[in-house]
Amino acid sequence: MADGNGHEPRIVAFLCRWCSYAGADLAGTSRIKYPPNIIPIRVPCSGRVDPAWVMEAFARGADGVFIGGCHPGDCHYVSGNYKARRRVTLLRKLLPQLGIDPRRLRLEWISATEGKRFAEVVTEFVEELKELGPMRAEEAAQDVR
């Protein structure tokens, strides 16, 4: 993973079980192609994603973290996605202080019917991360705990 060319980014994706995870499933059952760079983790709600998990994913070498939640107004728990959005706003302020480009953290609203959109968004994110290149080698080496 020395240079940006040919680098395959690793993305940890936290997907809400009600919307985005189902959207990802739909992409699969519809046989829509998208890059295999994501590691999906099903969560009950985007609002369940602890900011510590995001930081841990980066510390353990993820090149990107993706959070997929329900569209505004559609959260199964009414407002979990709104909370997730505010956390992401704050995380995007915090990450640059740790030397991490905030574009490496992405929040998207994807419903259960949006398999195609899921594939498009993931494709776009992988492209963006390829342009950003791998996390700096020394960053990965400095994983303290």
């Binding site: 602890d50 900011p51 510590a52 930081m55 909370k83 505010r86 956390r87 706003t89 704050l90 995380l91 915090l94």
Partner: peptide, 12 residues
């Protein structure tokens, strides 16, 4: 982790 916890608290 105090940062993650306080960030969550503020987001709420």
């Amino acid at each position: 982790d105090p940062g993650a916890a306080m960030l969550s608290a503020l987001a709420s």
